[in-house]
Amino acid sequence: MRHRISPGFLAMLPVMALIVLGFALPILLVFLYSLMPPRTFSLAGDPTLANYRAAVTEGYLLPLGWSLGLAGLTTLVCLVLAWPTAKALVRFAGRFATLATILIALPIFISESVRLFGTALFMMPGGGIFAGSLNALFGLKIGSILYTRTATLLGMVYIHFPFMLFPMVLGLSLVPQDQIEAARDLGARPFQVFREIELPLALPGITVGTLLTFVLSLGANAEAAILGGQAVIVITKAIEQRFGYAQDWPSGAALTVLVILVTAAVIFPVLRRVDLDRLIRR
């Protein structure tokens, strides 16, 4: 008698092979390189923590701090902006909501380069779309926030907003409307309804949206490059410089490991608890 291998196990093999080869293995390699002596290109050296020490002493925690700060702010702003939008999309279930949902989702498929480029064109001083229009229409001359940290933050919010919104909509649509009405009939104030019913029931969706937004914006670098000018150096930019210009793989690898550790610390506790079958199955 042949031992039967379950079909589910067989079916996941190709996908798992890809994830091991293209995700787990590169991360393992980055981890190993981060322990090699600075400016070496092989994995044969004696393991050392010199790169991590250098990351602290040579000021590379600053770009990491900027990325963490920007990602945190992006997440916060997206939370605040997405909540009323999600409420609207759930409340207006119907043709208006469907159209709005499609219109919000479409830009995800337009390249970040195009959308951020457009943001820059809009913000440009003098002959930019906004400043130029104001000048032509009202004779107003205004300054510009292009090439500042604020512009970088706005770009990050713009790009990551849908990643907060859609999981939130998914979570909010799980809240039964009659429960909210029952609470209101019993005299609950709007804030009480929000805190005691909507928030706890919609929490799985909000959590997924928050995680996705934070993690994706942690690695964001196009926003800073196109809208930030020289105003801010994000961690991905710093890593790229270590790998490329400085030709110091172990030092770049150590910085990469730090980002991965932050990501893992945020993702793992939550991913363990969220019930995927329930969230996805409709």
Partner: peptide, 8 residues
């Protein structure tokens, strides 16, 4: 891989 910074 979805919950991971793409540039990284």
């Amino acid at each position: 891989p979805i919950f991971f910074p793409q540039a990284v």
